Amino acid sequence: MSGCDDDKSLIDACRAGNTEAFGVLVTRYQDRLYPTIFRLTGCADEARDLLQDAFLRAFEKLDRFHGESLFYTWIYRIAVNLALSGRRRRRPVLRLNRDSGSASIEPAYDVAESDPSAPLQRAERDRMIQDALNALAADHRAVVVMKEFDGLQYEEIAAMLEIPIGTVRSRLHRARCELRDRLRSLVDEDAQLRQSSHHSP
């Protein structure tokens, strides 16, 4: 049975009165959803509270879920909207790619795992990136998280946020430029890493 069919069976069971079935859905998706909410809020406690609220709201509105989308897409949208309403580990190592156009976010070169300082360096990099995200306006932070971290398409972001695709693109461009300026030291550091890797034998 596919995950989609399995989700539908669990939702049907929950509607029939088996509330434990919804607990299976929570367990299945909460860890996948948490990083997104954390990046949107910048606060672990708030992200956990908001995640609980999102699943509670989904449970209360389960009769409105008709299966037009995947359950995860539906709960994702609920959680993101809660995070943006002001209610307010699989993390990638990131770098801002400096080029003549925009500053896109993409996987960085990993520090050698044999380096004992590597975990601290990654933690510091993550903190700097999260601080820069926190400094963005909420609507700009949302499109960056949804596009660069979660890999959503422009059309998906536009539909979830109920804004035109052009607005998504313009917000993303401005957010990338602001992140590039705020994370200038990381941009320069990654440029040096790439340069040194090209010259290494």
Rank of each mutant, 00 (worst) to 15 (best):
P119W: 15
V168E: 02
V24T: 15
D5I: 12
R125H: 03
H66D: 14
L161K: 04
S102M: 02
L186D: 03
L193V: 15
R39L: 06
G166A: 07
Q30E: 06
A103W: 05
R39Q: 04
E124P: 08
L82G: 08
L152N: 14
V144D: 00
L33C: 11
I37F: 05
A123E: 14
A13R: 14
D190A: 10
L62S: 06
S102H: 07
I75M: 09
N81G: 00
R32S: 08
F22V: 06
F65A: 05
V93C: 09
L40W: 00
V143Y: 03
E178P: 03
D188R: 15
S85Y: 02
E113K: 13
L33E: 01
I165G: 08
Q192W: 12
L183T: 00
S117D: 13
A123F: 07
D6S: 11
L136W: 07
A13V: 04
D115L: 14
R127H: 13
R125T: 03
A54H: 08
Q195D: 15
D7E: 09
P35F: 06
R39I: 03
E148G: 06
R176W: 00
V80Y: 04
G3T: 14
E156G: 07
A54P: 12
A135D: 12
I165L: 08
R171D: 04
L120P: 14
V143H: 03
Q121K: 15
L33P: 07
V111R: 11
R180I: 00
A191G: 10
R95Q: 10
C177G: 01
H198A: 13
L50K: 01
E178T: 10
E189L: 12
R194D: 13
R169Q: 09
E124T: 05
L96W: 05
L186R: 06
R39S: 07
D99C: 11
V26P: 08
E60C: 15
A159S: 13
S104N: 00
R91S: 12
Y76A: 02
F65I: 01
R32M: 07
I105M: 12
V144E: 02
R180M: 00
S69G: 05
Y154D: 13
L172N: 02
D7S: 09
V111A: 14
S9V: 13
R28A: 14
L120Q: 11
A83C: 01
L56A: 13
R125F: 00
